[in-house]
Design a protein around this nucleic acid. Structure first.
Lengths: 195, 195
DNA sequence: CGGGTCACTTTACATCATGTCAAGTGATAA
DNA sequence: TTATCACTTGACATGATGTAAAGTGACCCG
């Protein structure tokens, strides 16, 4: 698969990306093939299954958007609370960019073990980011004393889940700015000790 | 359908309920039929589609658990904040009871319009409960002044979503008591004005 | 007692998406 | 010239939902 002609592989990934972004999550392999301008079978020459194609698409998007660099930005914050704020900004901005693929991957969770693991990996990455942000708060002595570190991590992890973003922005009609502001507010009030 | 023999219909609903509760969400019509002790086709004599069977199962559970009565309890609270607390308790206790069916219904959302509407109806009911709780807070003058009533309603609606319950109790391993306590805490801090 | 209805069974089939298989094609490179 | 590579074409297996039709046994009504 690594010796594939990059242009066709890339065309498939881009087609998958845009279809999932615009067309809901009921995108079929034949739709993707048509959008990429190749036959349905040719897609299977590059990706062994729909699940693996979706996983590869998330990586494709990550690379295109340079996600790592953006998340790294939150690590340079000076205080725990500031780090929390920057992490929420970084992740909250990331979510809409992978939302299409995320939806499709979540929809496959029950039927496909590989899709389940792929999405679980994404969630685990989020959890580790949350843990790091909470650790910075703890180091500052700024965590609310009633909370343990792991409890605080789980709470933040829940708040920042893609479903919550989806519910507020897609179903409740909030703007992205509304969403970010509310998350900042809720997270600070729930995790940071009163001054 | 209203002239059906109740015992078979009820056996189907009970079978669906317990299978979904115990066996994940990949429950097939044939599984349900076998558990109910009838043929797969007989299920279709009572329910026209899998989606309608799931919807009927939620109503079946609601009736068995007397949900309305329990939610009504929150309406008798004297203060807004107390009403909020009681509503969170009532709903938070309800979620685990319909969780199995909810999962299956959510999994069908993209493929089946009827399932989508059924789950949307559930979410709308939750939203109305949230709106009523927030209205009671407003009437008390206890809502944080930075928030509008609708913004507060959406926030509570997001916090109490079934996905969040699932994430904390199933994936993060929280106990039901942990979940309820955390939700009470987060909701109060996010919505109620400082005293 | 006879005929009909009702609930359910059995068997067969249509559909739809995923994924597999095998033979064919056309360009390019050794 | 031949071999390989990327892709096409067409056929088929699978697995679930849902439809259709004929058959069976019990029970009720006249």
């Amino acid at each position: 698969m690594s010796s594939d002609n990059p242009t066709t592989r890339t065309r498939i990934l881009d087609a998958t990306w845009t279809l999932l972004e615009t067309g809901g999550s009921k995108v079929r392999m034949s739709d993707i093939a048509k959008a990429a301008g190749i036959s349905r079978q040719a897609v299977y020459l590059h990706f062994p299954s729909r699940a693996e194609l979706l996983v590869a698409t998330t990586r494709h998007i990550d690379a295109a958007k340079d996600i790592d660099a953006r998340l790294a930005g939150s690590r340079s914050a000076t205080s725990g609370p500031e780090r929390l704020a920057r992490f929420i900004d970084a992740w909250g901005t990331y979510i809409p960019e992978i939302h299409g693929v995320g939806r499709a991957l979540m929809a496959m969770q029950d039927s496909d073990e590989e899709a389940r693991k792929a999405w679980a990996g994404r969630m685990e990455a989020l959890r580790q980011g949350c843990a790091a942000a909470v650790a910075a708060i703890v180091a500052d002595g700024a965590l609310r004393p009633e909370l343990t570190e792991s409890r605080a991590t789980d709470t933040l992890w829940m708040l920042l889940s893609a479903r919550n973003w989806e519910q507020l922005t897609q179903e409740a009609g909030w703007s992205q700015a509304d969403y970010l502001a509310a998350m900042q507010d809720i997270a600070r009030r729930s995790l940071i000790a009163d001054i």
